[in-house]
Amino acid sequence: MNQLIPPFDFERVFLAPWTQHFELTFWIVLMGFLVATACGLVGNYLILRRMALVGDAISHSILPGIAVAFLLANSRGTTPMFLGALAAGVATTILIEAIHKRSRVKQDAAIGIAFTSLFALGVILISLYASKVDLDQECVLYGEIGFVTPLTQPVVTVGGLTLGPVPVVRMAVVTLVTGLLIAMFYKELLVSSFDPALAFSLGINATVMHYALMCWLSVVVVSAFEAVGAILVIAMLILPGATAALLSQRLPVVLLLTVVNAALSATTGFHLATWLDCSIAGAMVVMAGVLFCLAWVFSPTQGLLPRQWQRTRTNTALSAPEWIH
């Protein structure tokens, strides 16, 4: 057990990464932050639409999409990867709907069947065509954020200005566009998430919004996939948004809190991983989970403790006058 958990050394855990390995640390934390922000922002809408597990499904099922795209395109460009992911995302959505609308299988089972099948297909494709090269299937699951630094990745330069490693720059663009899209279509997204019937009467096509959201989700997932892997993407999709939802009930505030949460979990997660010498992406998710637990217990409005405290103080939990309104 002693070997498992290394002794805590403040110098090693908190200072050394920023002073000695700044190049490494900076890009990893930035990538973590970008992934958590983009996923968290999109994830908020998934939570609102009670589709959190559709996000789970898509983050698994883009795997065969990517595999097939590369098989066909024969290149490691960004475009085929995005196209493959988009196709897989839409295919998953359609498949889920086809199964539960055209048979009596309910939606939850339809989700389970669709994504496990597609994911299995992806794993088989990889294991069939990849055993010559040293491919580790686990990385599909939990990625490797440690390799996004300029040490191992080609660097993007625009007009002599060095921007950063390719995956990070790509993720940054996706995150920015995510923010822009949400700002542009804020009211459409809100209305169609809250009340599709109302959206229809306002001339907003809820189906189009649904598929657009799924498409964008696929894009976000595929760009995050590289860093955190298929399964931890789902964590980044749900945890920041769920934590924020416990702290506020107003959507703009929730979106803002999501970003703050992303920054916190990326930084603390990195240090946790440095201390324990474990998977960085995993540690970031663990920290996001810890933040959720903190919000769950201490949230001023909905936390367990404040509520308990309130209850004992007023004795009659029922006399709350809000009900009389």
Partner: peptide, 16 residues
């Protein structure tokens, strides 16, 4: 070692 899903996939597909 560089066990990294996507680059390997790339290489793999390139060499396919």
């Amino acid at each position: 070692s560089l066990k990294f899903a996507l680059p390997v996939l790339f290489t793999l597909c390139a060499a396919l």
